[in-house]
Amino acid sequence: MNTTPSEPDGAQGTSAPPLLNIANALTVLRLILVPVFVWLMLQPGDVLRMIATVVFIVAAVTDKLDGQLARSRGLITSFGKIADPIADKALTLSAFILLSVAGRLWWWVTIIIIVRELGITLMRFMMLRRAVMAASRGGKLKTTLQMTGLIGLLAPWTMFLPGWLATALTVAAYVAIGAALVVTVITGVDYVAQAIKIARGTAEERTA
């Protein structure tokens, strides 16, 4: 992701980075892959479901890669700060919704995660005028657990694995989703606490 660094555009150089760069290209690619993933998941058959899982994995890899490139090469742009979290949430939330529609994940889990993810993302955008709320370690753990659980539930393991192993992987995926749900709620509360602290600090500065 290329939204977490606190440096302003061009902080690592004398001029702002170009809009057309590899990090932004990967973000756009992820946005394009989201509808492809959704369409494949809605088609019948384990083969297309496996292809959809591969597309999801590729998109998830671009999420990590574009952030690394943006930070290491000084390619952080305003476009990336806005488009990256949109692509990130579009990918993960569409997967949660599709799994619930297919009956492989409880709707209450999906709803809690949707409310948390959209709410915190909106709050972070609103707080940009005051301070950049960088992703915490808990937030990164949440993303890792979510991706692990989603891939485990998306993949048609019985297509190429023995039944006992497919069952074990599915159970492991549900455990990862459960852990992700806990971390998702905890980090959400932490982000709200950070926002309140920042808002109070700003208010005190204005009245000082």
Rank of each mutant, 00 (worst) to 15 (best):
L141Q: 01
L42P: 00
F96W: 01
A11Q: 08
V109D: 09
R104T: 10
K140F: 06
I151P: 05
F37S: 00
G45E: 03
F125S: 08
K140V: 05
N2G: 14
G45C: 03
A166M: 08
L169G: 13
M123G: 05
I151F: 12
A11E: 07
P85C: 04
L69I: 14
K64D: 08
T27S: 14
A134I: 04
A193G: 05
S72H: 11
N2W: 07
N24T: 10
T27I: 10
I114Q: 12
A173G: 12
V55D: 09
A134K: 06
A59E: 01
A23P: 00
F37A: 00
W107F: 13
L42W: 07
L75D: 03
L75C: 04
L69M: 06
E7D: 09
P35I: 04
G178S: 12
W106T: 06
R130F: 10
L31D: 02
A199R: 09
T207P: 11
V132W: 10
W157C: 11
P35T: 05
V192C: 15
M50K: 07
V55I: 15
I120G: 08
M127Q: 09
A173T: 12
V183T: 05
W157H: 13
L31T: 02
S136K: 02
F37D: 00
A16H: 05
A134H: 04
R200V: 15
D46W: 14
V132T: 10
M126G: 07
W157Q: 14
V192I: 15
F96K: 01
P44Y: 08
D66G: 08
L181N: 11
T144D: 04
L65W: 07
G45L: 05
A180K: 15
D88N: 04
M133I: 15
L31Y: 03
R129G: 13
L93W: 09
I57G: 10
T207E: 15
R71L: 06
A179H: 08
L69G: 06
F96N: 01
G119M: 07
L20A: 10
L91C: 06
A203I: 10
I113C: 01
G80L: 08
I97Q: 09
T143I: 07
L19K: 11
V183I: 08
P17D: 01
E205V: 12
L75I: 03
I198N: 12
L118C: 13
D46E: 14
